[in-house]
Each structure stands twice: as structure tokens, then as C-alpha cells.
């Protein structure tokens, strides 16, 4: 490796704390924090606010740790793709080994903290998430199958489920629905990006769906996922852990997502600039923030007025 220079000077690390922070993929962490908080708030029951804050930080650090492990293993391909060349390892700020050690230490600390201070169902789920992202996704699937992000997306889908488990101490159908929303959302979200960054993935020999199965098949699959996502977006209302207003807004978001994907499917790449794909990618991020944002607002409104979900329970 380029880092292992034989001069003493170059083996002395110039890494600063900000480089280590960048190893944790702060942008991904933002989404993790957001969805985990939504899961925490939407869950029935209560948790001490101090422990809730600790839980969210532990989940964020755990997710960050899996990011650092990912950057250790993927240093070779990160150096090839334009989107990732500025990451700390390919940029030469941190060595791959330092990234590995950092990822392991942070994984252990975050899982222990969540397990000891909150509960071990949540702690176990966090450990499984890190294992899933670092080993199943990064080491195994990413380079071997075009279904990589479909299965890898599960790792990103765990945080709201962990948030839910922090409060209830169990997983439950509600936690699974929150998981499913992100899980089904990931493929169309990521493939929209892959469709216009195709060449990059090709250069790095990462089998993304558009490079392997072709653009047409990718667009068909994106449409199918979006059709599933539309009703799923309103599912929290139908399962009784969100109010009717959430049902309407969630359903509308799901339909809007379907519309943007339909546009991608309809234009089918005839537009050189791939505007439909870029629009879908942009909207998909807004969608996820909006749906979990609504879920949070809904939960807060319910907690303060106690009228939202209660009425539907009384009917049953």
C-alpha cells in the first residue's frame, strides 16, 4: 500500500480528529439518527429522556463504526470511484488499518453502551446491524452480486427498529414495518444514483444492477419496488401506531415516490442528462426524511393530546 512508506516521517500519522469523524460517514449518520429517533418516539411506552439520548448516540456511533469498517475494506475501490476518492483512507489521511481498528473499537463501545444502559435486544440488534453491513454487505455481497444494495439496504433499515426496541425491549410487527419502509425504499433510491454513476461502478468492478442486468431491467425493478412502497408508506396508520393524518400524508408520499419512479421508467434513459433519475434520487431523500418526520410529529401530537391512536383502539 502507498501508506507503508519506509521512512519514519511518513509512518507518523497526520490524521486529525475530523478525519476520524469523516470515517463514520456523517451524512449517513444523519439519516440513521433521524430514523432511530422516529422509532423511539413512535414506540408505545416510555424511556428516560437521558437514556433516549444515549441510545440515539450509541446507534449513531454503531452505524458510524460500520462505516469505518466499510472504508477499511473498500479502500481499493473507493480510490477508483469519483464519488469516494476524497474519503479519508483513499485521500491518505488515515491508513486502512487505523480505520479497521477504529471501527472495531467504536463497534464494541457502542454495542456495550446500548446493551448495558438501555437493553440487550437493542444492543443485539445494533451488533447484528454492524455485522450485517461490514461483513454480509461490504465483504461478501457488494462485489459479488447485483442484488448487493437490496440486501445491504437491510443494514440501513435497522435503526428505526433498534429505536423501537430501545423502548419496548422487543421487535414487534411495528418495528418490522418501519424496517420494511427503508428496506423497500433503498433499491429505487440507490439505483437512481447508479443509473447516472454507472461508469464509476463499472471502473471499480462493483456489480451494480444497471451494469449487470441492464438499464431496462433496473427500471422495471425500481417500478416494482415503488409499487410495494406506496401502500407500505401508509401502513403505520393501518396497523394502529400512527394517526389518520399520517395515513394520508404517508400515502401521498408513497404515491409521489411512485410517480417519480414511473417517470424514470417511462423516459427510460432517452434523456441524455438523466433528469428523471436525478429528480427521483433527490425526492427519495426528501421522502425518507418526510415520512419519518411525520411519524415523529404524529407521535408527539399523540403523546400530548392522547387522542390520535386511542380513538382507533377504542373502536377495536
Amino acid at each position: 500500500m502507498s501508506m507503508s512508506n519506509d521512512t519514519f516521517d511518513n509512518t507518523i500519522s497526520l490524521a486529525e480528529p475530523s478525519h476520524y469523524f469523516a470515517l463514520m460517514k456523517p451524512r449517513v449518520m444523519r439519516l440513521v439518527v433521524f430514523t432511530a429517533v422516529a422509532g423511539l418516539l413512535a414506540a408505545p411506552g416510555s424511556i428516560d429522556p437521558f437514556l433516549a439520548v444515549i441510545a440515539v448516540i450509541a446507534i449513531a456511533v454503531g452505524a458510524g463504526a460500520s462505516g469505518a469498517l466499510n472504508m477499511w475494506y473498500d479502500a481499493d475501490i473507493d480510490a477508483i470511484m469519483s464519488r469516494t476518492t476524497s474519503r479519508p483512507v483513499p485521500a491518505g489521511h488515515v491508513t486502512a488499518n487505523q480505520s479497521l481498528n477504529y471501527g472495531i473499537v467504536m463497534s464494541v463501545l457502542s454495542v456495550l453502551t446500548l446493551g448495558l444502559l438501555v437493553n440487550w435486544v437493542a444492543g443485539g440488534l445494533l451488533a447484528f446491524t454492524i455485522f450485517f453491513y461490514a461483513v454480509i454487505y461490504t465483504m461478501w455481497l457488494k462485489r459479488s452480486t447485483p442484488q448487493n444494495i437490496v440486501i445491504g439496504g437491510a443494514a440501513g433499515a435497522f435503526p428505526p427498529m433498534i429505536g423501537w426496541a430501545c423502548v419496548t425491549g422487543s421487535i414487534g410487527i411495528e418495528g418490522i414495518v418501519l424496517f420494511a419502509i427503508i428496506f423497500i425504499w433503498t433499491p429505487p433510491h440507490f439505483w437512481a444514483l447508479a443509473l447516472w454513476k454507472m461508469r464509476d461502478y463499472d471502473d471499480a468492478h462493483v456489480p451494480m444492477m444497471p451494469n449487470v442486468a441492464g438499464e431496462k431491467s433496473t427500471r422495471n425493478q425500481m417500478l416494482i419496488y415503488s409499487i410495494v412502497l406506496a401502500p407500505l408508506s401508509a401502513a403505520p396508520y393501518f396497523l394502529g401506531f400512527a394517526g389518520p393524518l399520517f395515513g394520508i400524508l404517508g400515502g401521498a408520499l408513497g404515491l409521489a415516490f411512485l410517480w417519480f419512479t414511473y417517470k424514470v421508467w417511462q423516459v427510460a434513459g432517452r434523456d441524455e442528462k438523466l433528469i428523471a433519475e436525478k429528480k427521483l434520487f433527490g425526492f427519495s431523500i426528501a421522502y425518507l426524511f418526510a415520512i419519518f418526520g411525520f411519524l415523529m410529529i404524529d407521535a408527539i401530537v399523540f403523546r400530548t393530546t392522547e387522542s390520535y391512536i386511542l380513538s382507533s383502539w377504542m373502536v377495536i
Binding site: I12, S13, L14, P17
Partner: peptide, 17 residues
């Protein structure tokens, strides 16, 4: 090994963190 200014600064910041 005598550290240069940049190395010293980076190490100090890491220690503080």
C-alpha cells in the same frame, strides 16, 4: 524521532479527542 510541527499538532488533537 523528532516530530515536526504538523505531526505534533495532529497528535495533540488526537489525544485531546
Amino acid at each position: 524521532v523528532e516530530l515536526n510541527e504538523q505531526q505534533r499538532r495532529a497528535r495533540r488533537m488526537r489525544n485531546i479527542a
